[in-house]
Design a protein around this nucleic acid. Structure first.
Lengths: 93, 93
DNA sequence: CTCATATTTCGATAGATTTAAATCTATAGT
DNA sequence: ACTATAGATTTAAATCTATCGAAATATGAG
């Protein structure tokens, strides 16, 4: 058995989140940076703020991202490496 | 870096294919059976033939499935374990 | 030709993505 | 405290894409 029935929904959610170019780029970028704020992600990947927020919401929702800290109006995000390793086979160095 | 730019498209395709309940169930089922024909998959997962064909096409297209052999009008499918291991972290025993 | 298996086409429906505009939240200045 | 500003999120509407399934079309066996 590849996936336990209990985690089937979670797995679908995670893979659906990863199966979109922008979101995979966000994960990829955050794998290289420990943490980044929204504006930093927007600049690097050339997103509109609202578009990014929608994608971040999905990535938070499925557990692949965490809000690492808030500093003033800045929200910093980081990848949840446990979650990533649980589902994704690619190397995160 | 999580994903090489060159394989970004491929990764999106694979994860998009997995991020749908029916298709994840097909992969899961085929992980337990070496190979199965369309009718066998239809029966076990309760799909219409045409619906299954649509999903199989996507799974073949992204490389997660292979057509293992044809026997008469039967088409047998199997998971491409190399491909699965390249992208998916879950254990395939 | 006929039957069984599988795939493709096409239309309807549902779901996802994007963006502008509005709203929220925290900080700084007066 | 009030206002202004910057960063981020939410809402709402348009657009785009995916999914499903009936019907039509292949393909192979007998």
């Amino acid at each position: 058995m590849l996936i336990e029935p209990s985690s089937h929904k979670e797995a679908v959610k995670v893979y659906k989140a990863l199966g979109e170019p922008s979101r995979l780029s966000i994960i990829n970028l955050l794998c290289q940076h420990k943490e980044l704020s929204c504006t930093e992600i927007e600049q690097r990947l050339d997103f509109k703020g609202s578009t990014l927020s929608h994608h971040l919401k999905q990535l938070l929702d499925c557990g692949l991202l965490d809000l690492s800290r808030k500093e003033g109006t800045y929200h910093f995000y980081e990848v949840n490496k446990d979650m990533l390793k649980r589902y994704v086979a690619l190397t995160v160095e």
